[in-house]
């Protein structure tokens, strides 16, 4: 409880770190902030060419099928990989000044989250340009899905950022894990029915499916799926926060 109160007091620090990160990311490049949009767009083009034209995917409007899942996935994977290194990256700050340490992973995940929101402008643009259209009732659940994913990503990143301080290999292990995880989540393909029960164990499966139900199938997602995802998200957040709180006591000495 006191942690939450303290984090609230330090909200301005989170805001300035997020701002600094977003502004600093493309500083000096010619296209600057446009890269936030160009990146997902080109990923979309590449995946579409590979899967739709070369591998002959049978799914209708495959580019959209892929895109509405890929953008949330990019947020999640960047949140856990850059999140893992976040405390290490700010070690000068951690070693020399006091602030609630959770501010660091929170601001990293938030900055990835803001990036995803901006990428969603491209998603919406694609949906409008291709004439797919929206189900506005379903669209109302989209923020809830996003928040659930944010909570889950934050929980994971609290866990990984704290452990990485003591065990630096984790940062590199995680980039492999993230790659494998992507293929264990139905992003580029539909899950074959015989494997479905295994895929259900993966929290990201539920989250990605919710996104797809809303934006691709234009339906209100199954409440139980959403609740299950939310439950898992909250569980990981609490677990991550507890581990983080325990490990952060010796950050200054380990860094």
């Amino acid at each position: 409880m006191s942690t939450i109160k303290e984090l609230y007091a330090y909200r301005q620090m989170i805001i300035s770190l997020v701002k600094k990160d977003l502004r600093g990311r493309y500083k000096g490049s010619v296209l600057g902030f446009m890269w936030t949009f160009i990146n997902p767009l080109f990923q979309l083009i590449v995946y579409t060419i590979v899967f739709e034209h070369i591998l002959d995917a049978t799914v209708d409007k495959y580019y959209l099928y892929l895109f509405v899942a890929l953008i949330p996935w990019i947020f999640f994977s960047s949140a856990i990989t850059t999140g893992a290194a976040s405390v290490l990256a700010q070690k000068e700050l951690v070693k020399k000044i006091y602030f609630p340490r959770m501010v660091i992973p929170i601001s990293y995940v938030t900055s990835c989250f803001v990036n995803m929101l901006l990428s969603f402008i491209v998603v919406f643009a694609v949906i409008i340009v291709t004439g797919t259209g929206f189900n506005f009732l379903a669209l109302l659940t989209l923020p809830v899905i996003m928040i659930v994913e944010y909570i889950f990503a934050l929980g994971m990143s609290l866990l990984t950022s704290a452990v990485t301080v003591y065990f630096r290999d984790l940062e590199h292990i995680l980039s492999i894990v993230a790659m494998a995880w992507m293929y264990m989540t139905p992003i580029v393909y539909t899950v074959p029915p015989q494997y479905e029960k295994y895929f259900r164990l993966n929290p990201m499966t539920h989250i990605i499916e919710c996104y797809r139900t809303v934006l691709y199938n234009k339906q209100v997602p199954d409440l139980s799926t959403l609740l299950l995802a939310a439950g898992l998200g909250v569980f990981f957040l609490i677990f991550g926060a507890m581990v983080f709180n325990k490990l952060q006591r010796h950050f200054a000495e380990e860094l």
Partner: peptide
């Protein structure tokens, strides 16, 4: 604390912006 002065200063940002960043690290809203 006056232990680490200028924590979180970003060289490309203006003095004014850095006041906001730096002061926020001290927990100011």
């Amino acid at each position: 604390s006056l232990i680490e002065l200028g924590a979180g200063f970003h060289p490309d940002m203006s003095g004014r912006e850095n006041i906001y960043t730096n002061a926020s690290i001290f927990g100011l809203t």
